[in-house]
Simulated assay, not measured.
Amino acid sequence: MTSVNSKEGNKEEYAFIYGDEAVSYEVVRKSVPQGSSHQKVKRKITIKVHPNCEVVVTSPEDANREDIHQAVMKRAKWIYDALKEFRGHLEYVQAKHYVSGEMQFYLGRRYVLKIVEDADALPTVKMTRGKLLVTLTRFNDDKTAMVRALVCNWYKVRAERIFHERLSELLPQATWVDGLPSFRVLPMTKQWGSCSAKGNLMLNPHLIKAPKECIDYVILHELCHIAEHNHSDKFWRLLTSVMPNWKEVKNRLDGMAELYLNE
């Protein structure tokens, strides 16, 4: 299952001051694995800023509080800059009203929604010159609902076609899969895709808004679940074998998730 975001473990909450702002962060402590010589393997303190502006610090369970704080302060500027960038993304995340001028996405590119009235035309949606053009026969009280329905259906049709093309293109890499897996396009709020125990795939139509490389990542992720049903080390090795740069592609997709899933 490819989720939009995930966290694990117990957490502690702290904060530090940067400039005139208090920046909060969570500490997730993890047990240190035993080495082959029965000596503890040293685990570093790592810091991650999530697209939803959560700051998560992962540390060994026995790490000193002061050591954690110093590690955070050494990267304080980096944390602040990352938060500033993600906040810039979130400023654009507002509920869609399906009116002219709103931003829409398709295969990683931005398009401006334009709605026109034409009494002689059938209701349609098409891309033209950087715009997603919606034509209605006439404007009435149901205008917003009609535009939303037309746009959502347009995305679904495009998603079914493009996902099928990408699945067929990627399948030769998934040598452990027999035949062409069936898939459904199904709206999901927290997942990009999933794979059933029988190997049937479900893909989120909102994924069509992302670059093709991100679509490929989700499809390959789910194909790997046909061989490995959980996120074991074997699963991640299999995914890395077919997409060595999956981590950066996943980060790119997660960074835009709020915008792509917004409707």
Score class of each variant (00 low, 15 high):
residue 87 R to Y: 10
residue 117 E to F: 06
residue 114 K to I: 09
residue 115 I to Y: 02
residue 86 F to K: 12
residue 119 A to I: 10
residue 119 A to L: 12
residue 83 L to F: 13
residue 81 D to Y: 12
residue 114 K to V: 13
residue 99 V to N: 04
residue 102 E to F: 07
residue 115 I to R: 01
residue 102 E to G: 02
residue 114 K to E: 14
residue 92 Y to G: 12
residue 96 K to A: 09
residue 96 K to H: 05
residue 93 V to K: 10
residue 81 D to W: 12
residue 118 D to C: 08
residue 86 F to A: 07
residue 104 Q to F: 10
residue 109 R to C: 05
residue 102 E to A: 04
residue 109 R to Q: 11
residue 115 I to E: 04
residue 94 Q to I: 09
residue 91 E to A: 06
residue 85 E to P: 06
residue 83 L to A: 12
residue 107 L to H: 03
residue 98 Y to N: 03
residue 81 D to P: 12
residue 117 E to Y: 06
residue 88 G to T: 13
residue 91 E to S: 08
residue 90 L to K: 06
residue 107 L to T: 04
residue 111 Y to N: 01
residue 90 L to V: 02
residue 83 L to G: 12
residue 89 H to P: 00
residue 100 S to F: 04
residue 91 E to D: 12
residue 109 R to T: 05
residue 106 Y to W: 10
residue 93 V to L: 03
residue 92 Y to N: 14
residue 110 R to L: 01
residue 98 Y to K: 04
residue 96 K to G: 01
residue 119 A to M: 10
residue 83 L to R: 14
residue 85 E to Q: 15
residue 89 H to A: 07
residue 90 L to H: 11
residue 118 D to I: 08
residue 113 L to H: 00
residue 97 H to R: 14
residue 96 K to R: 14
residue 90 L to I: 07
residue 109 R to P: 02
residue 105 F to I: 01
residue 89 H to C: 09
residue 86 F to C: 02
residue 105 F to G: 00
residue 91 E to I: 04
residue 106 Y to S: 07
residue 115 I to G: 00
residue 114 K to C: 08
residue 112 V to H: 10
residue 82 A to F: 03
residue 81 D to E: 15
residue 106 Y to T: 00
residue 95 A to H: 12
residue 102 E to M: 06
residue 85 E to H: 15
residue 111 Y to D: 01
residue 82 A to N: 13
residue 116 V to A: 08
residue 100 S to E: 06
residue 88 G to Y: 08
residue 101 G to M: 00
residue 89 H to T: 14
residue 112 V to K: 13
residue 100 S to Q: 02
residue 103 M to P: 01
residue 96 K to N: 05
residue 88 G to V: 09
residue 90 L to T: 05
residue 106 Y to D: 02
residue 107 L to A: 06
residue 105 F to Y: 13
residue 119 A to S: 15
residue 105 F to H: 11
residue 94 Q to H: 14
residue 86 F to G: 05
residue 99 V to M: 10
residue 117 E to A: 09
residue 109 R to A: 10
residue 96 K to W: 04
residue 105 F to C: 02
residue 118 D to R: 11
residue 107 L to R: 14
residue 115 I to K: 01
residue 96 K to M: 11
residue 84 K to D: 11
residue 84 K to L: 10
residue 114 K to S: 12
residue 99 V to K: 11
residue 97 H to M: 10
residue 100 S to T: 15
residue 100 S to D: 03
residue 106 Y to M: 08
residue 82 A to G: 07
residue 85 E to M: 15
residue 83 L to H: 11
residue 87 R to T: 07
residue 96 K to L: 07
residue 116 V to G: 00
residue 99 V to P: 01
